[in-house]
Write a protein that binds this DNA or RNA. Structure first.
Lengths: 324, 324
DNA sequence: AAGCACTATGCACAAATGTGCAGATCGGAC
DNA sequence: GTCCGATCTGCACATTTGTGCATAGTGCTT
């Protein structure tokens, strides 16, 4: 019976994690084999029954975290990763740790805004299950592009979030950028779009990566056929350093007068800043410029990033300090 | 260097619990041996760096918990324990699980009231460390008795709580019962005593067991020389079923007119009910009557008890149901 | 600088845990 | 009933983790 299996998993988890019994002892109490207990415990972990949290006492925490926390006023989680690992491995590990860090923040009745991109895709693959009620996952920005090729990214990401948290998924079926600002204005008056925008306005959590224009391995936005040459030229000549959910900004965090944003479908930065919990996940030093701009714009309340990038962020700061 | 060890423990914990690396892999990244990593992880667990929580979805939870939760309106944690285990083993396992369940509830700036007795003693032995700031452990009731023998219980219990949470400990240096109510009145006007009473009034958490008069293996209060024969006779003839922190009550939860309470040093039930979080730990079916009274008196917001007792509590209820 | 007490380290082994596989069990479909 | 597919189970083995012990630091005292 499936129900009894769940109950057994709960009992086993309690005995294993809270009473320090060995699986062998648990097997005897549950009148089953040790291997079954091992599997019950796996199931308990996978299904989010067991939550492991690492709480590092803020004051005794590593130098690096303290500096970033103080300088940028964000709750920071530096993911320990050897600097010698390649980008893909680093991303994977940052993503896994991000997924597990996000878990405890998600609660029932949450409205969770999710962006898309390689970072979020990786995160979505490592989410741990957690059953919530009446939660909603809402897509932050459109994902269509002019080639319409392959990238089912966005919907896959959303789906994974939805099933991890047992939440309803609200896709945002518009292109990432409109060709004409006027189309956006028109669409924004459509009831179907307004429903999404209203959900976004009520978000309690937003989760996003950052794009960085000069990344060695550029974000999808800059390489994926979302923008044409003219657009890319505009970006290059307007001091843009990066984007969050396809909304661009400069290194000082400003975004006024960036004409492309009028055609972008992501939430305006001011709007994003209204969200109580804004979780930014960054992997790879090449994103440093974008990250710096995002922090300057105060887009994140929580920052999860790899150690190398964290170190670079701090070095950068100490070379070009800032008063205030 | 001790600081680097702590930092290593944190890194190791993150890599092990959040990135699913094996200890072997972590050892290589940390340039140390696998056994050291194993020990670092133990240290991380012991020091409260790693918190494991079991969250059982309330609605899918076992029948038993649901019934108790609904009937008594408490947040209940049933500890799975074989009914064949003896009292001591059961107590040990309930205590361990209680300790770990309490952990996450303790926070900085908390004022934690702690009773004493065999249950609390066992719990105190299993507390997991958690660093908090400006927390205080305050003793709920005096522990002195007329034989003054051996029982350093109370102070040991308090000390363990204090060191687990890095909290200041405030003992209550009075006997459990005064011989004369007038002495209590006098003492209660002393500034040194008032300081404790004021702390108690500001408690955010209270942790206690229950005493049960007819327990096969009676609580210390009833056997430990705290009361003389006259007192015990009074108890026997006044329908008292148990006590919390040496304050007695009847099976319906009432305590008015129980003369012994006027000489007791524990907080009046009405006072205890003011505390936001009141955690009651119970192990052993022989405490069922006391427990029942405590629940009727609405003394607990959180109840941690062994499975056999939980089952008995529910059976008892279904035999003698109650409306409302 | 030497001596001492204490702690941390790595090794080698012991114990505990994870998993591929073959057989058992279960729940429909016919 | 029985056949089939899917799932669950326990075994045997592989992997991972824990720990006693001898050794190597480490800091403090004299």
């Amino acid at each position: 019976m499936a129900a009894s299996r769940h109950a057994d998993a709960l009992r086993a988890a309690q005995m294993y994690y809270l009473q320090d019994l060995t699986m062998d002892a648990i097997a005897r109490e549950l009148r089953t084999s040790r291997s079954t207990v091992s599997r019950l415990l796996s199931a308990a972990r996978d299904s989010g029954l067991v939550q492991v949290q690492i709480r590092n006492p803020l004051d005794t925490g590593p130098e690096l975290e303290g500096m970033i926390r103080r300088r940028f006023n964000v709750d920071v989680h530096v993911v320990p990763v050897l600097e010698t690992l390649n980008e893909a491995e680093t991303l994977d590990r940052v993503a896994m740790q991000a997924a597990r860090t996000i878990g405890p923040l998600v609660d029932s009745n949450a409205i969770i805004g999710v962006a898309w991109g390689s970072t979020l895709s990786a995160v979505s693959r490592h989410l741990t299950r957690k059953i919530t009620h009446d939660s909603v996952i809402v897509q932050l920005n459109g994902a269509g592009n002019m080639h319409t090729t392959g990238i089912t990214y966005a919907s896959d990401i959303m789906r994974r979030f939805g099933s991890a948290y047992g939440a309803r998924v609200e896709q945002f079926p518009v292109p990432a950028f409109f060709d004409h600002a006027a189309t956006k204005t028109a669409m924004w008056n459509e009831r179907s779009v307004q429903r999404i925008l209203e959900l976004q306005a009520k978000m309690s959590i937003a989760i996003f990566g950052v794009g960085s224009v000069n990344a060695d391995y550029p974000s999808h936005v800059y390489a994926g056929g979302y923008l044409d040459e003219t657009d890319l030229n505009i970006l290059a000549t307007s001091d843009v350093v990066g984007d969050v959910a396809t909304v661009f900004f400069r290194s000082d965090g400003s975004s006024d007068g960036i004409i492309l944003n009028e055609r972008s479908t992501g939430p305006a930065l001011a709007e994003l800043r209204q969200v109580r919990r804004r979780i930014c996940v960054v992997s790879g030093v090449s994103k440093i410029n974008g990250l710096r701009g995002a922090l300057a714009a105060n887009l994140a309340t929580d920052l999860i990033l790899d150690e190398a990038t964290a170190r670079r962020l701090v070095d950068f700061e100490s070379l070009a300090p800032r008063n205030g």
